[in-house]
């Protein structure tokens, strides 16, 4: 299985009150529990079930994912830039593992 790897695109610089778009993607199989492998055996369900975004420690966006979300979940959302800080992204796997990523943004 390929390694689970988060990726994200946050503008490095933004002006005050500018609405920026943040794009994220995590490489994950998102097994819905309905697919079968080559031998006809059911692949057990294993998905990313939660995506959480914090800015300077404050929670700003949460998404709950269900098996109907595609392999390698892509999520894009807006954010209104006010101050310089760090975004913390966190994906939670069905098996309890958490994958994290941080991105800095300078607001002038």
């Amino acid at each position: 299985m390929s390694k689970i790897k988060p990726r994200g695109k946050v503008p490095k610089k933004a002006s005050v009150d500018e609405i920026i778009e943040i794009k994220t993607l995590i490489r994950h199989p998102m097994h819905s529990g309905r697919m079968k492998d080559k031998n006809g055996k059911n692949i057990p369900k294993r998905i990313i079930n939660k995506f959480l975004v914090k800015f300077n420690g404050k929670q700003v966006f949460v998404m709950d994912l269900e098996p109907s979300i595609s392999t390698n979940p892509y999520i894009a959302f807006p954010y209104k830039a006010k101050e310089t800080g760090t975004f913390d992204f966190e994906w939670t796997d069905d098996n309890g593992e958490k994958y994290t990523m941080s991105r800095k943004m300078t607001v002038s």
Partner: peptide, 30 residues
Amino acid sequence: LADGNPAPNVAKFSFSTDMGACSATTRMRL
């Protein structure tokens, strides 16, 4: 939500006022 998938729920987005706009993009299975 989707009415033809095995389960109706697809995703739930919880927004906050810090976001400045209410929009999002993702990819789903049908």
